[in-house]
Computed example of a mutant assay.
Amino acid sequence: MKSSPFHAVPITVRALLEQYANGSLTPSRAIADVLERLDAVDRAEVWTLRICAADLLARAREMDVLLGTHGRAIIERMPLFGVPFAVKDNIDVAGLPWSRGCSRHHCVRRVACLY
């Protein structure tokens, strides 16, 4: 696996956002690195659902444009901008299947609701 700037920094939200802000890393490079790391581990059993790599990279490229246009201001407005994360399938996320904590109750909402 090739060396990348994402592997060289502590994996903290603050460090990641600072690299975005100072231009040493882009969301698309960070996501590509995360995908490389996930593929290297090759543990499909830990995922109920993974968003396909092409969709993740397309969204990350959109974020690259936002970062290029707005700079540090986009990070201040969106504090988790470009931060990779996982969501358990019992959490309601718009457009993703969720189980409500029970595998027989899978459904997909167009809009997520917070209760």
Results as ranks from 00 to 15, higher is better:
Met1Thr: 14
Met1Asp: 10
Met1His: 10
Met1Lys: 10
Lys2His: 13
Ser3Glu: 15
Ser4Asn: 09
Ser4Gln: 08
Ser4Met: 11
Ser4Trp: 06
Pro5Met: 04
Phe6His: 04
His7Tyr: 14
Val9His: 10
Val9Thr: 11
Thr12Ile: 05
Thr12Ala: 06
Val13Gly: 07
Val13Ser: 07
Arg14Cys: 15
Leu17Asn: 02
Leu17Ala: 04
Leu17Ile: 08
Tyr20Cys: 05
Tyr20Arg: 02
Asn22Ser: 10
Asn22Ala: 08
Asn22Trp: 07
Asn22Thr: 14
Leu25Phe: 02
Leu25Ser: 01
Leu25Ala: 06
Leu25Thr: 03
Ser28Thr: 02
Arg29Gly: 15
Arg29Glu: 13
Arg29Ile: 14
Arg29Thr: 11
Ala30Ser: 05
Ile31Ser: 01
Ile31Tyr: 05
Ile31Met: 12
Ile31Asn: 03
Ala32Gln: 09
Ala32Thr: 10
Ala32Met: 08
Asp33Ser: 09
Asp33Cys: 07
Asp33His: 04
Val34Ile: 09
Val34Arg: 07
Leu35Ser: 00
Glu36Leu: 12
Glu36Ile: 09
Asp39Ala: 12
Val41Tyr: 05
Arg43His: 10
Arg43Trp: 07
Glu45Ser: 13
Glu45Phe: 15
Val46Arg: 09
Val46Lys: 08
Val46Pro: 05
Trp47Ile: 00
Thr48Asp: 15
Leu49His: 08
Arg50Asn: 03
Arg50Glu: 06
Arg50Leu: 04
Ile51Leu: 13
Ile51Gln: 06
Ile51Ala: 07
Cys52His: 14
Ala53Gly: 07
Ala53Glu: 05
Ala53Trp: 00
Ala53Val: 03
Ala54Lys: 10
Ala54Tyr: 08
Asp55Gln: 00
Asp55Ile: 02
Asp55Pro: 03
Ala58Phe: 07
Arg59Lys: 15
Ala60Leu: 01
Arg61Gln: 07
Asp64Ile: 03
Asp64Ala: 01
Asp64Met: 03
Val65Gln: 12
Leu67Thr: 02
Gly68Lys: 04
His70Ile: 07
His70Pro: 06
Gly71Glu: 04
Gly71Val: 04
Arg72Asn: 11
Arg72Glu: 12
Ala73Cys: 12
Ile74Gly: 05
Ile74Arg: 06
Ile74Ala: 05
Ile75Tyr: 02
Ile75Asn: 01
Glu76Asp: 12
Glu76Asn: 12
Arg77Tyr: 11
Arg77Met: 11
Met78Lys: 13
Leu80Val: 06
Phe81His: 04
Phe81Gln: 06
Val83Thr: 03
Val83Glu: 04
Pro84Arg: 01
Ala86Ile: 10
Ala86Tyr: 07
Val87Thr: 08
Lys88Phe: 03
Asp89Thr: 09
Asp89Gln: 07
Asn90Arg: 04
Asn90Pro: 03
Ile91Gly: 01
Asp92His: 14
Val93Ile: 10
Val93Leu: 08
Ala94Ser: 03
Gly95Tyr: 00
Leu96His: 02
Pro97Gly: 02
Pro97His: 00
Trp98Glu: 03
Ser99Tyr: 06
Arg100Tyr: 05
Arg100Gln: 14
Arg100Lys: 15
Gly101Tyr: 01
Gly101Trp: 01
Gly101Ala: 02
Arg104Cys: 14
His105Cys: 13
His106Cys: 13
His106Phe: 14
Val108Thr: 09
Val108Glu: 01
Val108Cys: 03
Val108Gly: 00
Arg109Asp: 15
Arg110Pro: 09
Arg110Gln: 10
Arg110Tyr: 08
Val111Gln: 09
Ala112Gly: 09
Ala112Asn: 05
Cys113Arg: 14
Leu114Thr: 12
Tyr115Glu: 11
Tyr115Trp: 12
